[in-house]
Each structure stands twice: as C-alpha cells, then as structure tokens.
Design a protein around this nucleic acid. Sequence first.
DNA 1: CATTATATGTCAAACGTTTGATATATGTCA
DNA 2: TGACATATATCAAACGTTTGACATATAATG
Lengths: 325, 325
Amino acid sequence: MATIHDVALKAGVSVTTVSRVMNNRGYISERTRSKVFQTMEELNYHPNEIARSLLRKRSNVIGLIIPAVSHPFFAELANHVEYYAYQSGCKVLLCNSQLDPVKEKEYIDMLKRNMVDGIVMGSHTLEVDAYRNLHSPIVTIDRRIDEDIPYISSDNYAGGRLAAELLISKGCRKIAHICGNLTLNLLANNRSMAFRDVMLEHGIENVVIQTDMNVFDHDQYGRIIGKLLREHEDIDGIFATSDIIAAYALKGCTQAGKRVPEDIRIIGYDGIGAVSWFEPEISSIRQPISEIGRLAVELIRKQRDGEPFERENILPVELMERSTT
Amino acid sequence: MATIHDVALKAGVSVTTVSRVMNNRGYISERTRSKVFQTMEELNYHPNEIARSLLRKRSNVIGLIIPAVSHPFFAELANHVEYYAYQSGCKVLLCNSQLDPVKEKEYIDMLKRNMVDGIVMGSHTLEVDAYRNLHSPIVTIDRRIDEDIPYISSDNYAGGRLAAELLISKGCRKIAHICGNLTLNLLANNRSMAFRDVMLEHGIENVVIQTDMNVFDHDQYGRIIGKLLREHEDIDGIFATSDIIAAYALKGCTQAGKRVPEDIRIIGYDGIGAVSWFEPEISSIRQPISEIGRLAVELIRKQRDGEPFERENILPVELMERSTT
DNA sequence: CATTATATGTCAAACGTTTGATATATGTCA
DNA sequence: TGACATATATCAAACGTTTGACATATAATG
C-alpha cells in the first residue's frame, strides 16, 4: 500500500505538505493542493488510520459491551449506537460478554489497549471498582455505579406504574409480574418496585416471579409461564419485564386455552420491533432505544472532548397499547 | 498511561527485555521475567495495541458489514462471528450498511485504512469490481462475486426443495411463495428456483410474490399477506423466504380467520430463535448460522495467513418441523 | 587454554503519520 | 524602505511498540 512518502515523492512535494493538504492546515496553494489530491488518486492512497491513532492517542472507536447481540433489545441498541457513532465519525467494536465476568474483563482490557474513545457498558457483571478504576470515558446502560459514572436508563419506575395501572384499569384483579433477578443492582428493578407499589395502592392480589434473567435460555420462560398458569388459574393479568417474556406468556396462555386479552391481559416492556409480529400484537412499555443509543455516543464524545455532561440520564417511556391488553 | 519504557526503567532492564518477556522470545531468566511481570503489575501497564498494529501491519480486527444488526438473522450471525473471532484473538467492527451503497463503500474504505485482517460481507450493494479490487481478505455471505472470492451460503436449493416438498406431502394443493427481489444476484434466490421446480414436478398450482426485501419496512409484509389471502382464498400453503415473513403470514392468516396448520400451512426459512416464540411454533428451514459465522472467521484467518482455503462453501440446511405445517 | 553453546542484555531502526520550529520566497501596505 | 501577511517547503522529533544485529558473561567441552 502507498504511504504518504510515496505520494510526496510522486507529487514532488514534502510529506509535510501532503499531510497539510489532507488535514487542511497551513497555507497551501490551489495548484499544490490539486496536484497532491491527483497523486493520491493515482496511487490509490489511503492514509493509515493506525499511524494516526498512535499519534493522536485515540482510535475513534467506541467499545460496546452487551450480554449478547442476538437478544433483540441489545440488537436494536447496537443498531442505534452504530448509527450515531457513524454520524460522528466513530466506529463500533462489538463485544458480547455472554454475562461472563472473565470475558467482560478481557474485553475491557482489550478496549483500553486499543485506546478506544470510550466504552458503552450494557453488561455489568464486575465489581464496581472495576468500572471506577478504568479511567476511560464510559457510559452505563440501566445501571448506576456511582455518582461519577454517567448512566442512561429509561424511567423504569414510571414504566412499571404505567403497565401496572393499565392492567388494573382494564379490570384485572389478580396480576402476575415476571421479572429478572431482583438481587442484581439493576435499574430495571424499579419496574418491579413500581409494580409492587401500584398493587399495594389498589389492594390488588398479585404474584411476583423472578427468573434468573439468563439472556440465552429462553426455554425457562415457557416452563415458568406454564407453572404460573397451573398454580394460579385465576390470574387475569401479566406484566412481563421484557417483550420476549411477554411473548412466551402469550404463547403459554394460548396453549392453556386462555384467550388474550379477553381472559387474561399481557403487557411487556422494551418496545422491541418484534411485538408487532404477533397476533394479537403485544402491548408494551416502549423504551426510547434510539435515543439511548444517541445519548450513549454523545456522552462518550463529551467526556472524551472534556465537555460538561449530565451524569443522570433518565429517559421517558411510552405506553404502546396494542392488542394484548 | 505507562509505556514499555516506564516498565523497563522501573524494572532496571531495557525495553527490549520487557518486550521479549511479553512476547516470550529469546532467553530470559526466571528472575528477570518475574521482575518484569511484577513491575508491569505495579504500573498497571497495558501494552498499546495501536503501536503493535502499526508495526505488524494488521490490527486483529475483522470488519462485519451487514444490512442491519437489528434484523434477527444478522443479529444471530453477528453474535456467532463475534464468538469465533474472540476465540481466535480478533475483534469485530460492526458495520450496518442499511443497504446504502455510499455507506457500504465508506465502511469498506474505512476498514482498509484501519488495516483490518479481513471483511465479512453480509451486504453487497456495490458493483462486483468494488469487491474484486479491494485486495483485502474478504468473505461474502450468500452471494457469489466471482471464482476468486470465497463465499458461504446455506444450500438454498436443497432448502427450497425441502420446504416445498413438505407442504405438498402434507396435502397442500395451492401454494404461495413469498420471496425477495429475484433480480438481485443473491444465492437466496435458489430457494425460489427449487420451489418452482418442485411445483412443476408435482403439477401444483402456485403463486409467487416478490417483496423488495427491504430489511427495515416490515409493514409491507402485513399488506402483502393481506392482499394475497384476499386474492387467493383457496391457498392452503405458504413458503416464506424468511422467518419474519412467515411470522407475518401466520399473523395474517389468524386475522383472516384461517387456522394454522389445519386450513393453511406455513413454513419459513432461516431458523432464527424467534420461531419458537410463536404459538403455533413456526416450521422453518434452519441455516447453520453458527457454522456460517465460524467459517467466515476461519476463511478470513486462512487468507490472512496465506493458508489454502475453500472458495465455495455451501452448508447443509435442516428441516425444523414445528407446528405450522 | 581455546572453542563453543547457552543465557542475558543493549542499541537503534522501523512502522506511517502529525506537527512545531525554521527557512525562504512573494506581494501588499504604510 | 520596513513591516507584515501569505505561500511553500524542509527537518526532525514524537507516538509505543518489535526485532535483527550485536555484546557480554557463564558454563561446558575438547
């Protein structure tokens, strides 16, 4: 591959001049400029970004660490992060942690070695110190580490209330809530807080079921729903903490011969595109996934450039009422 | 951040020695080795991969260009590519082309400037010359460019036959086939060839509908299915060229008051995880997505290392009969 | 004792850029 | 004329590694 030296030689100028032409700095005559550009064309020259990165001590890469991109929520998140990163001249390095602390740590180290501009953490399996000490711009999704590290989440509490209140307003009198592991320090747990609060306020009978939220084992959802419907035949509402769980709830209800929404109402959370693939379409609390992605990229950029930025970013959710409620 | 010089200084050795310790080359006494490692610990030293990349003229990065990672098939593909890349010490740069030739070209150029080890092309919107001239290890998914560029695809023709024959064997007598744009030079079109051949062989009435296969506009599927069912009331089988289309077909049939599989049978293609979220679960032709990802990484690596490799990689498909057939 | 193999370490160039310091014209304005 | 802005170019250091060439010390061998 041609280097800047080859271009300079062929164009009859110095490498400095070529560099100045490329980076638009200093005085360059129109004649020189066009000659350089022409030579670059002729040699099919592409500046080596690695050398640039080495010098400017950053790579214009954003690391995205998530449990698994095969999970629809994270797939959509990754899609938007890539979109906004591209808009701001950055690239995205895709890191699936598989919720394995070892892999997550190795990815963090790797990203630092590669001088990424910053890291978007959608997976957090490590101790808080691991994140505090990493001295690299970082943004966490749906998890608050401490007062220094900026985080983004949807308004989980409001979302939980919306879902719970909708079910009640539709007449549900015994409601199940299927959520992740509440002992993990995730902001998503606020959905469950809100559920509990609303149930108490209205004195509604309810049952809360924790899954271990293993992103990969969807089979468990089928089993859990089956068990739930068997043990609590009179349940007439389900608030699932993700749309996938809601989909399994819908499937389980149908299999158990219950009509949705007539016999039992179901609402999910996330608002992934897949909710509209179902019949009936699944009601959901929509997180602004695109905005989360946009903000994540912006927060990395602001930290990198030393601009001031907001630490707490709680974005509004929206009730998407479809056909299961 | 500490550099190799800092480590050398503090450990009282030369940078060469530190480098040799890290890379395990040359003779190093156990005493020196442990001292160096200890110093690295103390300084929290991480070797700068950018500098390494510059020297060895490659970055251990694989570029993955796909239409959109929010599409379940590509999300799963990305997941597996990441998995196997990680296994072989590589990182994955995620590039969504959005099927925009300009963006795809920019991504290709960017990847070259960053000296990636190779590019996995799951999106191909450019002229063949653009791929031929890029002088970088490359693998295409589901598209044959020429005899030089290795490609991977599932056995689309066999898959198409399997699907078509299954529907016939179940007693379908008028079958619809919903596929992408057949004028694009995609190997996926062989599914449609197979469908046509099987229909001819059995003398089965059929209707073929092309969508423009815009990965992002799912609404069109709903409209197409609705129109199809209205115009051909007597259709009793549908072979969809993707599982998402199959899901919309299932939804459309249910909305039209048809029972699946009693009144109409449906089979999709791809075998994405989502097929089992539905009730009834959707029958599908499973592509070995994991194997595709594994092979993609392997083919990049072999090209990079100058090892011999197979140009044509057609992987077997598998009939996953679930409940819609 | 000379020779050789083994063990350990140092030096400096190279990878492909950017950039500050410096030099030298040329033209314009007061 | 001097001062100044404009235009162009050169040189060399720097970014953080790796690595071939070379140096030295020690131990084993003939």
